[in-house]
């Protein structure tokens, strides 16, 4: 004790104690924080989270969706859309809407953190019952049947999103987006909530296993190598025709011109 007592008042001690305390608190937070997402899903609706979500909602969403989520002329009501809807719309950057248009476009940049989104989702979930954010088990497609998912995809999805998932045009400038960057969570939430022009595929229509199978098929499309060589964007005969008219005919006509040149 003599050793400590002697140095108790040394000027270094204050700094050392501070660093130590910070390390304990910070390390502890990091350690506990890493398990947080699973708990967060369960903790939806905790009072502080809802309050935070309400605050964010009032700042970022209420001008269009109304102070209590009742909807206005410029935005639909959020009563009953559920947490999954908020998670889909905000995490893909579709909301908040940058400008009115045919359809809210996905944006790479998203002003909200995951916690913010979870808070807003928790708040919107209190407005009325709606689909919850899918759990990790629901999103796990590892054991799903990809070929069955393909059949479901062609029946339910391909008429808008195109057989290869490249997206397609709808009326009046609206469109079904490409699925090439969609994560399993985004795919699942989209089916649950039917964002923009997409119909809702509730669990009554497509039970969880079906949704997982579709997810497996889409992930397969994303990862598939192109067996035949260059895939030309997988847009079908239009890009094939463009390639024919440009690259192939340029080569053929160049060859014809070369042969046709008068020998000197």
């Amino acid at each position: 004790m003599k050793f400590l007592a002697a140095r108790r008042r040394s000027p270094i001690v204050a700094s050392a104690l501070l660093v130590g305390a910070l390390a304990v608190v910070g390390g502890g937070y990091a350690a506990l924080g890493s398990v947080q997402p699973a708990e967060a899903a369960l903790a939806v609706g905790s009072q502080t989270q809802v309050e935070k979500g309400e605050q964010l909602y009032l700042e970022g969403c209420s001008s269009c969706h109304g102070l209590k989520g009742e909807g206005t002329a410029s935005g639909p009501t959020l009563v009953g859309v559920g947490a999954a809807s908020v998670s889909f719309q905000v995490s893909t950057g579709r909301m908040p809407l940058a400008a009115p248009g045919a359809q809210a476009p996905a944006k790479a940049e998203n002003p909200y953190s995951e916690d913010d989104i979870a808070a807003m989702a928790a708040f919107v979930a209190t407005l009325g019952p709606g689909p919850a954010i899918p759990t990790a088990e629901q999103l796990d497609y590892a054991s799903a049947d990809e070929a069955y998912g393909g059949e479901l995809f062609r029946i339910n999805c391909a008429q808008c999103h195109q057989a290869a998932g490249q997206g397609g045009a709808l009326t009046q400038g609206k469109y079904a987006p490409s699925l090439m960057d969609a994560t399993p969570q985004v795919i699942y939430e989209a089916m649950l909530t039917g964002p923009q022009n997409m119909p809702v595929f509730s669990d009554a229509q497509l039970p969880t296993e079906d949704k997982q199978a579709i997810t497996a098929y889409i992930m397969g499309l994303q990862e598939a190598s192109s067996m035949g060589g260059l895939n030309l964007g997988r847009f079908g005969p239009v890009t094939e025709g463009v390639f024919l008219a440009t690259a192939i005919f340029a080569a053929l006509i160049a060859a014809a011109v070369w042969i046709g040149i008068k020998s000197r």
């Binding site: 391909a158 195109q162 057989a163 490249q166």
Partner: peptide, 12 residues
């Protein structure tokens, strides 16, 4: 017969 893909096109 009950299926169709968006972007169905014929050859050029």
């Amino acid at each position: 017969p009950d299926q169709v893909s968006a972007g169905s096109q014929p050859d050029w």
